Amino acid sequence: MQKLLAKTAVAAIAIAFAGEAMATEWNVSLWGKRRAFTENTEKLAELVAEKTNGEFTLNISYGGLSKNRENLDGISIGAFEMAQFCAGYHRDKNPTITVLELPFLGVETLAQERALSMALYDHPAVQDDLARWNATLLMPSPMPQYNLVGLGDAPRSLDDFEGLSVRATGGIGAAMEAVGAVPTSMSATEVRQSLDSGVISAAAFAPHAHMAFGTIENAKWWTTNLNPGTVNCPVVANTDALEALPEDHRDALLSSVDEALDHYVDNYTNNTMAAWGPALDERGIERITFDQESLSAFEAAVAGPAAQAWIEDMSARGLPAQELYDFATGKLAELKYQ
């Protein structure tokens, strides 16, 4: 009887250890705080836990694992298994993705931004680019066109942007420079302090970020329709960690991407954008709307030269830049006529 009990105890311990070994925990590096921009990752974590009965969990950290500009570096060395980053923060680290940050690319909706990003992420050149960082692209964080919140006198025409110090990254920065503004690249978490201290006079963000990072708290004006472009911010996984997942856990993760993006787009459209107008009204922020003639002149001055400069720069690096640009613009044209 004692031998039987001993064997039973050993078996129970073995089963317990086996169950513990089956559990998977991934660390996920984000920044700021939970907001519309991170709802794709939050929903992904929820779905993965549900599908695996809690055996696979994504532990989301807002700034506790890495600085936002170093998330791709952390992924490359396996410091954590998943992260979000913005291509414009470090265009040299992910040059192929920056084609989606070109000014006046022409994306009109979050649905288009989502589909275009996912299509480009499948391009072999893009996958090779991210493979240098041991990263696998999982999904984008689609954002609407950026616009400016600012202090001081509001710009009434494009000429009024001359000398304006504005936080603007990537292609948006190039667009602002073309109308005489002085673009400054800084991470989202630095912007509010820079505005309040007078380091910059305006900031380009999507609406959710203006609310989340407090740029509207002391702002005087908002451009409703400048729409120079947006920033592309993927969620990536460490490739080794992804390949090491048990098959059922990997399936749970990858099969949840579309649903996580559905949730993200629905939340941004129906919650974030619904809150944006009232947030401006409550603070007495003036809406600045430019006429079509000014917008057309802005686009004409910026779009073509920026695209050509990007193609020349990336081609000099040995990348198939023209192919990537044609792929992106061609895919976008398809999406618009579906």
Rank of each mutant, 00 (worst) to 15 (best):
Thr189Tyr: 08
Glu42His: 05
Gly88Lys: 08
Pro278Trp: 09
Lys336Pro: 08
Glu20Ala: 15
Asp196Lys: 15
Glu177Lys: 07
Ala131Gln: 11
Arg34Asp: 14
Ala175Trp: 02
Pro246Asp: 10
Asp153Tyr: 00
Gly284Cys: 06
Ala309Ser: 11
Leu65Phe: 00
Ala204Arg: 07
Arg317Tyr: 05
Leu102Trp: 01
Glu108Ile: 06
Ala11Met: 07
Asn68Tyr: 11
Pro320Met: 04
Ala303Gln: 15
Glu282Ala: 15
Trp133Glu: 10
Thr269Leu: 12
Thr269Phe: 01
Val302Trp: 01
Asn270Arg: 12
Leu30Trp: 02
Ala260Phe: 05
Asp326Ser: 01
Glu299Ala: 15
Trp31Thr: 09
Ala18Asp: 05
Ala303Glu: 13
Leu110Ala: 03
Ala321Asn: 07
Glu101Trp: 09
Val48Asn: 09
Asn232Asp: 12
Asn218Ala: 09
Ala79Ile: 07
Gln338Arg: 14
Leu72Val: 07
Asp291Ile: 11
Ser165Pro: 06
Ala49Glu: 15
Leu335His: 05
Phe85Lys: 01
Ala178Glu: 07
Asp281Asn: 13
Leu102Asp: 07
Asn270Ala: 10
Ala12His: 02
Glu293Phe: 04
Gly88Glu: 08
Ser187Arg: 02
Trp26Gln: 07
Trp310Ala: 00
Ala279Gly: 02
His90Glu: 15
Ser187Gly: 14
Val231Arg: 01
Asn218Tyr: 05
Leu253Pro: 13
Gly214Gln: 04
Lys331Val: 00
Ala206Phe: 09
Asn40Ala: 14
Leu102Gly: 02
Gly64Leu: 05
Ala79Asp: 14
Val236Thr: 01
Val191Pro: 04
Thr169Phe: 13
Arg250Thr: 12
Ala14Ser: 04
Asp122Trp: 01
Asp326Ile: 02
Gly150Leu: 04
Gln292Met: 10
Ser255Met: 12
Ala9Thr: 13
Leu335Ile: 10
Pro305Lys: 10
Glu101Asn: 13
Pro246Asn: 09
Pro155Gln: 09
Ala309Thr: 15
Arg283Gly: 04
Val191Gly: 08
Gly152Ala: 12
Ile216Pro: 03
Ser197Trp: 05
Thr96Gly: 11
Ala274Gln: 11
Leu242Val: 08
Gly32Asp: 01
Glu334His: 03
Ala297Gln: 14
Phe298Arg: 10
Gln322Glu: 13
Ile216Gly: 00
Leu44Ala: 04
Ala168Glu: 09
Ala328Val: 00
Val191Trp: 03
Ile15Ala: 13
Gln145Arg: 15
Arg167Met: 14
Asn68Met: 04
Met22Gln: 14
Ala154Gly: 09
Leu137Arg: 14
Ala306Lys: 00
Thr223Asn: 08
Ile285Leu: 04
Ala83Tyr: 00
Glu177Tyr: 00
Ala241Gln: 13
Glu108Gln: 15
Leu151Asn: 06
Ser255Pro: 10
Ala328Asp: 03
Ala307Glu: 11
Asp281Tyr: 01
Gln308Leu: 06
Asp291Val: 00
Glu113Lys: 15
Met1Tyr: 10
Gly330Thr: 01
Ala16Tyr: 11
Asn94Tyr: 13
Ala181Glu: 13
Val126Gln: 02
Leu319Phe: 14
Leu110Tyr: 04
Met314Trp: 03
Ser256Cys: 05
Leu253Val: 01
Asn225Gln: 14
Ala203Gln: 07
Leu137Met: 13
Ile15Gly: 10
Lys33His: 11
